[in-house]
Amino acid sequence: MIEVQSLSVKYQQNTILNNIDLTLKPKETLAIIGPSGCGKSTLLYCLAGLLKPYQGNIHIKGEIINKPRRQTGVILQEYGLFPWKTVFQNAALGLTLRHEDKSKIKKRVNDVLEQLHIKEQCHRYPIQLSGGQQQRVAIARALATNPDLLLMDEPFSSLDTIVREELQGVILDLYKKRSLSVVFVTHNIEEAVFLGKRIMIMTPKSGRIKSILDNPCFGDHHIRSEIAFHEMCVRVREELEAEQHDQSTC
């Protein structure tokens, strides 16, 4: 699905990503976790085709990524909803931009809004919605174009715990129902363990991959109350903190 070879990104002398290699199989999910400023959002932007000048190769399904890819759905921080568009118009935007015909848009968008339990709000504007509802609209917009890959940049970071876990469940559902690969950036360890089949830990500052863990806890809606889940969280935490410790000693 995704094939990244020796990817490096520099911005004004600073190395943001340094020689990243990464592969992702179809129908897999990958959590990218690391401290602020480690380049995790930059990596996601590269995968989304939103950041052009990079060194190395990014292939998604054999296609070289140097502009946004049709089959990729992207959810950015702060939802990226357009305040002047209603819920329906926001969710339909991807299809509207592709000049799909009206009846097809209507059906597809209504289906996806229904799936995300936000259809009753379809004539309202984003400002009239709660944070969780806005996030649902952002998910609907990304899914309306029927992507095979979903990229999310700290999707739930501004939501409270209850809503966040509810939406993590929504994403897991969607992943199971559609044939979807997911890559998401987070700084929340539990989110990484709940939604990431593999968890990639990045080093602070230097823009490298520290390690990639396989996560046996992935895929179960009720895993949060199990011991194994907490053990996995502790493992990820140790991995993250070990890195910080290395940094401070050198």
Binding site: Y45, G49, L50, V74, L76, L97
Partner: peptide, 12 residues
Amino acid sequence: SQHLFLSIQSLG
């Protein structure tokens, strides 16, 4: 917001 520009670009 830069996010709005990136969002709409990501939608093609």
